[in-house]
Amino acid sequence: MSKVKVKKDNFWVRNRKSNGYLLKKTIMKYGISICRFILLFGMCFLILQPIFNKISISFMPEGDIYNPTVISIPAHPTSSNYELAAKLMNYQKSLFNSFFMSLAIAVIQVTMTTIVGYGFARFDFPFKKFWFACVMLVILVPPQTVSVSLHLHFRFFDILGLSKLITGDTINLKGSVLPYFMMSFLCMGLKNGLYIYMVRQFFRNIPKELEEAAYVDGCGTMKTFLRIMLPDAKPILTSCFLFAYVWQWTDGFYSSMFLGTTPLLSTTLNGLVEGLGAYMTRLVGSKTSVSVAYSNAVLSAGTMMFLLPLIILYLFAQKGFVESLSSSGIKM
């Protein structure tokens, strides 16, 4: 205890001894951390502000939004926006659908991309570079480029002309969920090239000796993969799974193209404003336009309901998102 006190008292003495260096250094240190705090606080506010904004708007009745004295805290908080949004979005059903659809697709995608990524990382085979260039191509080609012909592809779907031979016609797979499951199964879903790349980078860093030791001990290829490699890959698989889940949840492009008939949160949220207009028209009996403020309040409420499950997931799995990806040291 006494030792600490002596040290404290001697700050100025020590400072004099170091010709003012200690004082300069200390001021620098605190100055930097104050600057850093201000900077980070500002940037964090920048990122969080739209969410706070949405939360506050979603609780406001129409009058509050137009009231200039009400800025962020509603004067007459109401939950009617939420009730209406839930009704229009068919919330329970689409939440249920979204939950299971994202889960199923994420599991399929992660399983398949892990297998493919492992194949790219640990085996030598002819044309490997070529196939990996193809993975790069998959990452680079925007899905919009091929959407037209995928559309037609599934409209007139056929495997090697088999169905035409039997039934005399092609199968119309539009509007069913089968095509998207098929695409996920064959690693062509949303951003699957990126997952393959991430998994490959991870497996590449595992030393070769581990594999050889397993081989000497009598492990086959499959057993090495399942028993030696997979348990090691937990962090990267977690982050891939979380990405796949979240991006599937928020995806509008593939969902509206392939899963159009299944009410998902992302597709119903997209049509929320139009749905509101139709609802009001039906309620009043004649064609009415919904005020911008009101539709925005309902839209904010809908967006919050859409994001809430993700935010909860993020709070629990935050470490999986950030830390596992950065600490597993993916070398690009």
């Binding site: 194949g119 490997k128 592809h153």
Partner: peptide, 30 residues
């Protein structure tokens, strides 16, 4: 090992040919 490697990446090759190359060529021809 080469065969095993091809087995591992076969889903990707299949998907690539079916859902990427074919649509790409088709959209180019369109």
């Amino acid at each position: 090992k080469a065969i095993a490697g091809y087995l591992f990446i076969s889903p990707f090759i299949l998907g690539f040919l079916m859902f990427m190359i074919k649509p790409l060529i088709q959209s180019l021809s369109m």
